[in-house]
């Protein structure tokens, strides 16, 4: 029974990170009907950015909490810049082209970004610093759920609640929902649809970057290809959870344990 709970908790942790990444797929799909294959690479770039920032800061001896926050913010900003740019150069010019064209462009962007990081950084696995310590108060239940699992679950919950608030109640959130439902009508009420699309890419990329930081510190190593694999998993989650906002949040945490569980059963 303990073993089951342990699997369930670690599956839930992984699942909630994949959900963060999956949100980027569903949001973009909802707004422009494109499966953004480059999204996994945005997550990978987030992981690399947080790796670089965290390593530098730890050399200077900053406290762990500060490192986590600064690395997370830096990764979110840097990944958002990539997401924004990818949309502008690879998708926007093809907005009125047949659907296959931006899809191919997305695959191209994915390959380009992977190889760019491969050349600019390294092809080796890099050891990611352990950013989340074992808390003393977690001792009694540490055999079931680790401290990093708790931090990850709390972080993803807070981020998703914030996103839900943004989508439901803010001006940009309303504009996003309107654009997803009826682009022509969104234009006719005066919504700047280009800006909504940019905002969607920026938000989705920031979420992926946070996912990148969390998962990298959880697993302990990164390389240039992690985006591809995570991308496929998150994309699967997005499809299984339904390509809608709320669906991906609720769909993935369930499929997380399942996936992990099946994985363990298969390999043991």
């Amino acid at each position: 029974m303990d073993y089951f709970i342990e699997l369930f908790c670690s599956g839930l942790t992984r699942g909630s990170i994949y959900a963060l990444i999956a949100l980027g797929y569903t949001m973009v799909y909802g707004i422009i009907g494109l499966i953004n294959f480059a999204h996994g690479e945005i997550y990978m770039i987030g992981a690399f950015t947080s790796f670089i920032v965290a390593t530098v800061l730890s050399i200077y001896g900053f406290p762990l909490a500060a490192i986590v926050v600064v690395a997370g913010v830096a990764a979110a900003i840097w990944s958002s810049a990539y997401g924004y740019t990818v949309e502008k150069i690879a998708y926007k010019p093809l907005r009125h082209a047949p659907r296959l064209a931006p899809l191919i462009s997305a695959i191209g962007m994915s390959i380009l970004l992977q190889n760019y990081v491969l050349l600019a950084q390294t092809s080796d696995f890099l050891p990611f610093p352990e950013l989340i310590p074992e808390f003393a108060f977690m001792e009694p239940i540490a055999h079931i759920i680790g401290s990093s699992d708790i931090v990850i679950l709390l972080t993803t919950t807070v981020v998703m609640l914030a996103l839900t608030f943004l989508i439901k109640f803010t001006r940009i959130g309303k504009a996003m929902r309107a654009t997803a439902q009826d682009r022509t009508m969104a234009l006719l009420v005066g919504i700047n649809v280009d800006r909504v699309i940019s905002a969607t890419f920026i938000i989705g990329s920031a979420l992926a970057a946070i996912g990148g930081l969390l998962i990298a510190s959880h697993i302990g190593q990164i390389n240039f290809a992690i985006g591809f694999i995570a991308g496929i998993k998150a994309f699967t989650a997005a499809v299984l959870g339904g390509i809608v906002y709320s669906g991906s949040c609720s769909g993935e945490p369930d499929s997380g344990p399942d996936r992990k569980f099946c994985h363990r059963l298969y390999f043991q």
Binding site: K174, R177, A178, Q181, D182, T184, M185, L188, V189, I191
Partner: peptide
Amino acid sequence: HIFADLTVRENLDL
């Protein structure tokens, strides 16, 4: 072109 999934009020707000 009503925003079908939004409420009447949200349509008006838009």
